[in-house]
Each structure stands twice: as structure tokens, then as C-alpha cells.
Computed example of a mutant assay.
Amino acid sequence: MASIYDLKPKFQQLLDWPTRKLYGAGVTANQVTLVAAVCSVALGATLAVLLAIQAGGGAPVGLFWLALPIFLFIRMALNAIDGMLARRYHMQSALGALLNEAGDVVSDAALYLPFALLPGINGGWVVTLVLLSALSEMVGVLGQTVGGGRRYDGPLGKSDRAFLFGVLGLLLALDIPYLPWFTAVMILANVLLVLTTWNRGRQALRAASTSETQP
């Protein structure tokens, strides 16, 4: 099933120059992974604090929401660069694989959970979305265990979720009323994540079965 992840090869071509520059500066793939995760947690915590202050009668978050779509794009670039560094310059390691998978789940949770604090919405749908996101990534990783390879199938993979929440952050920064549609979007995203998880499991088992029957 189609996903924004399918555009990754072309995106990586645009990142060739910064990848070479970072390698020349002695930056490692694991360092890039850690920077992306730490910055994600920092931004998510800042958004949560600002929303709490807003709920207490303080200044609204306002244009600070713009930081989310901007950073999500930067994070996508960092995620691509760490993989390019690892593969191109032989930095692949067991630690790097663990940091990459765990960092993505932690970063998603940190960046998306603050939406549960938006005034007037049912935050439970956001929490469920974060949990389903983690489940979909776990099933994607388990594809390797069953012999079907790491699965990135959609329709709501990591890149798709980043695009969705980037758009939501932009709409909030523009002060567009969100109460009429936000919950419906979250419900739809939850449904798509269930489909994503099922699709990844199905494709992993299919790939594993195919590899077993090949001579």
C-alpha cells in the first residue's frame, strides 16, 4: 500500500551533500540518531508546557506551533542521513539499530502526545494513536524475526504520520478552529494505523512464506 516512505530514495539524493559534510566533520550515524531523538523530546516537552500554561489562563501557543512542521521535516532529514551514514561509511551496528528503532518510537510519542492537551478535545484518541504507532513499528520490526524483512508498509507509516501532524501544527499556527474536525481526523488516523499494522504483519508473513518456498 502506498506511503510517503516510497519517496525516500529521491529524498536521500537531496541529502547527499550534507551527509558527506557530516562524515567529513567526524559525525557518526548514532550521534545523528540521538540528536534527532533529544530534540524531539525537547520540542514535545516545550509544547506540552506551553499548552499547560495556556490552559491555566496564560498566553496561547499560537505561532509556536510552526516549530512542529519545521522540525518534523528536519527530523525526516536526520533520519535519512543517519541511515546513509551507516550504510555508506560502514557505521552499521547493533547499537545503532536499537537506537534507531527506539528513538523513532520515543520521538513520535514526544511530538504527538502534546496534541492530547488541546482544549476541548478528547485526548484519548491521541494517546491511542501513539500506542498504535508504536505497535505498527513493533510489527514492522518483527517482520525481520519471521523472515519477512523490516516492513514499512502504509497507509500510515512514520513519514505519513509526520506529514499529518505537520499539517495539523500548521493549521493550529494559523489559528484555524480545530474543534469541528480534530476528533474525526484522529479517529480516521487510528483506523489507518490498525490497517497499517495488519498490512505489515500480512506482508511480512507473505514475504517469509515466499522465501521458504524458494529453492
Rank of each mutant, 00 (worst) to 15 (best):
L117D: 11
L63Y: 15
L50E: 10
R75F: 03
A97P: 09
R161A: 08
D108T: 03
G56Y: 08
Y89A: 00
S107H: 04
G26I: 01
L7G: 09
P119A: 13
L193S: 03
A52I: 12
Y89K: 03
V185A: 08
L78W: 04
R20A: 15
A59T: 15
R200M: 05
F11C: 12
G57Y: 05
R206S: 12
G58M: 05
M76D: 15
L66S: 08
A208F: 04
A207Q: 14
A134L: 07
A52E: 13
M91Y: 07
A109W: 06
S159R: 14
I74A: 14
L72D: 10
P69L: 07
L15M: 10
L15R: 03
L117M: 13
E101L: 05
K8F: 14
L50R: 12
G201W: 04
G154T: 07
P9Q: 01
A80N: 09
N199P: 11
A80W: 07
F71S: 02
L72W: 09
P155L: 06
I187L: 09
D175I: 07
A80T: 08
A134D: 09
S107E: 05
L193N: 03
G201Q: 04
L118E: 03
L51H: 12
V41A: 00
D108L: 01
Y23A: 11
A52P: 05
G201S: 02
V41M: 00
R150W: 09
L117A: 11
G147N: 10
G96W: 07
V105N: 07
A208Q: 03
D6V: 08
A116R: 09
F115D: 11
G26V: 02
G103L: 03
S93Q: 07
L22M: 02
K158R: 11
P119K: 13
A55V: 04
Q12S: 13
L72M: 10
E212T: 13
A102V: 15
D82M: 04
G143F: 05
L179Y: 12
L85H: 14
V126T: 10
P119I: 09
G83D: 06
L34P: 10
L15P: 01
G157D: 06
I81T: 08
L174H: 05
T213Y: 10
G201N: 02
L117F: 12
L132H: 03
F73T: 14
A189G: 04
L118R: 01
V139W: 00
G123W: 00
Q54V: 08
I187F: 03
I53G: 12
V41F: 00
Q214E: 14
Q54T: 07
N79R: 06
V191P: 03
L95F: 13
G147L: 10
I74C: 14
L43A: 01
P114M: 02
S133I: 11
L172E: 06
M1F: 13
A45I: 05
L170H: 02
V27K: 05
L170D: 04
Q203S: 15
L132V: 06
T183S: 13
L156D: 06
L34G: 08
L135H: 10
A45Y: 00
V139A: 00
G56A: 09
L179R: 15
P114C: 01
D153R: 12
N30F: 04
Q203E: 14
I53M: 15
L179I: 14
